[in-house]
């Protein structure tokens, strides 16, 4: 039985930078959790209804602690951040928001994201920010499972039937461009790196690429060219489908201002 995490973060971030940093990581987890939860009752087999809901729940738990922590700096709750911000205020990576597509798209997206999150959280375990270090230490165990789950499926799909191979290669070609944004260094992460709070994303890429490539090669998939590299999520620039996601997620909460649930 998975129990929801506490809403109380314990402490507020030391400054606005750490708060913004926690919120962007929280946004990644929240939005990918939302996409995964869309699979509920639609998965290829019941084991996957269960597994995808489980991963969505892990990510939601991470999102809640990160948003609660980041929001504490400006007196905003996890729900204020999730439900009352506009599209341009969300700082999640575009990779986390792209639509589910078929099961291959979902699994490729998960492999690319979970391997990134794994490298990131492992580094954050030694963050100078005690709260982020604690959140990462708990989450990294969950993410190890997400990596294993996605890897296993990419292997089966890539090296399964001809049809599944073709679909998975097409999924990889479609999703790969969004992976570049994971490793963009902007001003905020540079300041985070200078103060020892978090790693420069670009530093994580070699280990990430190694891990991802191992799986893709064994799955008989070909790494796409690094041509198109969409980005903008960290600055609140999102894909067109993201507005619909927020409309669905926020509608009920916004229809009853101030209500408790």
């Amino acid at each position: 039985m998975t129990s929801p995490v506490s809403e109380q973060p314990g402490a507020a971030p030391a400054n606005a930078d750490v708060a913004a940093y926690a919120i962007r990581l929280g946004d990644d987890a929240l939005i990918l959790s939302h996409r995964l939860s869309e699979w509920t009752a639609h998965a290829p087999q019941i084991e996957e209804d269960l597994a995808l809901a489980n991963i969505a729940l892990d990510l939601l738990g991470q999102a809640r602690t990160l948003l609660a922590y980041g929001g504490a700096f400006s007196g905003r709750s996890e729900d204020d951040l999730a439900y009352l911000r506009e599209e341009r205020q969300f700082t999640n990576l575009q990779l986390t928001e792209i639509e589910n597509g078929d099961f291959a798209v979902t699994m490729i997206r998960q492999l690319l994201f979970s391997c990134y999150q794994h490298e990131l959280y492992r580094d954050l375990e030694s963050s100078t920010d005690a709260q982020l270090a604690a959140i990462a230490a708990k989450a990294v165990k969950e993410v190890s499972y997400h990596v294993e789950h996605a890897s296993t499926w990419v292997l089966r799909l890539g090296d399964g039937t001809e049809l599944s191979h073709d679909r998975t290669q097409a999924a990889l070609d479609a999703v790969w461009p969004y992976s570049h944004e994971l490793f963009v260094d902007d001003e905020l992460v540079r300041r985070m790196a200078d103060s020892g709070v978090g790693p420069l994303p670009s530093v994580l890429r070699p280990a990430w690429l190694g891990a991802v490539q191992d799986v893709l090669t064994e799955a008989t998939l070909v790494l796409p060219d690094d041509d198109w590299q969409p980005s903008g999520g960290r600055n609140g620039l999102h894909t067109e489908g993201f507005g619909y996601l927020l409309a669905e997620m926020q509608h009920l909460h916004r229809s009853h201002p101030g209500a408790q649930w």
Binding site: A56, A63, L67
Partner: peptide
Amino acid sequence: ITRAPSLRRKAILLAKVQ
């Protein structure tokens, strides 16, 4: 699940459906 009005309720519902 995708429309739950608070993150706490969303987590409870996801866990239940799981």
